[in-house]
């Protein structure tokens, strides 16, 4: 690590001001940031710790949505009775992130702000049509994810909570990259109030909606319908762990399995 200034924010406003003043980075669970700092790939002069801000934690049901505070850990989401009851796919997805140590520290807000191309939460947020609440505004899922590690957030903008509309049914199927166990391809399928949504992570530069599969499922919400969709492989990632063609194939397969699991 390089030397850095550590500040522990007392409130969201405090944190935003500290970030604006210092040009530093917000620290949520540290599961991406601290690792990068240890490798000396990240060198934030100042780190503003959000861990002491009580208003950023908590899970509640508000009408027909589950609202989760940005600093809620994956373990808390996975164990939450409210989430398991209303959106079991979300709890199951959180349970599959990383390992126990990662789940005890990693947060919803951190995962979304980082927007790793293979992270799970972006698929949940985009697939369920969630809304990202920040200290400045509300951002619809379709507007939030811009590119690899890139979101719509401004430099001093802090995610405060995410509101997940409760779907009729949903499931997340993740095909793990054998080494990292991040999603080589992860697909969340949901029947929402606004129709079928299919969000894919791991396959491309960032999470995106598989519109061809959404159209097929709108006609027939069945595993076979999803499996029959041929996803083009251009614009998909190709690396040591899988070619673009393999990822394209897995998108349909995982989508079909998610449909079957959604019930």
């Amino acid at each position: 690590m390089y030397a850095f200034e550590y500040q522990r924010a007392k409130s969201v406003a405090d944190a935003a001001a500290a970030l604006a003043k210092s040009g530093g980075k917000a620290l949520a669970g540290g599961q991406s940031l601290v690792g990068a700092m240890k490798l000396r790939l990240a060198n934030p002069g100042t780190v503003v710790d959000l861990g002491g801000i009580a208003e950023l934690k908590g899970i509640k049901k508000e009408g027909d949505a589950i609202v989760i505070g940005a600093m809620t850990t994956h373990a808390e989401v996975a164990a939450s009775a409210a989430v398991k009851q209303a959106i079991p796919a979300l709890a199951a997805m959180a349970e599959g992130i990383g390992d126990r140590q990662v789940r005890n520290r990693g947060t919803l807000g951190g995962a979304l702000a980082n927007n790793d191309p293979a992270a799970d939460y972006p698929a949940a947020v985009l697939g369920l049509g969630a809304t990202v609440h920040t200290n400045k505004r509300k951002i619809a899922a379709d507007e939030f994810f811009k590119g690899m590690y890139e979101t719509a957030l401004a430099a001093d903008e802090i995610i405060t909570a995410v509101s997940f509309p409760i779907p009729k049914k949903a499931a997340y199927m993740k095909f793990p990259q054998p080494a990292s166990r991040f999603a080589l391809v992860g697909v969340l399928v949901a029947q929402t109030a606004g129709g079928v949504r299919v969000a894919v992570t791991g396959a491309a530069s960032h999470v995106h909606r598989a519109t061809a599969i959404e159209a097929a499922l709108a006609k027939s919400f069945s595993a076979d319908a999803a499996k029959a969709v041929k996803i083009p492989s251009d614009h998909l990632n190709s690396d040591l762990h899988g070619s673009a063609a393999y990822r394209a194939h897995l998108v349909s397969v995982m989508a079909a399995r998610a449909v079957a699991a959604a019930g």
Binding site: P178, A179, S180, F182, L240, H241
Partner: peptide, 24 residues
């Protein structure tokens, strides 16, 4: 089943330089 050390054939960089890419 899992492990493979890979160097990039052009640059000679170790592509499997961590557990993110080297599957134990």
């Amino acid at each position: 089943l899992l492990e493979r050390c890979v160097y990039d054939p052009d640059s000679g960089q170790l592509l499997t330089g961590s557990y993110m890419d080297y599957a134990m």
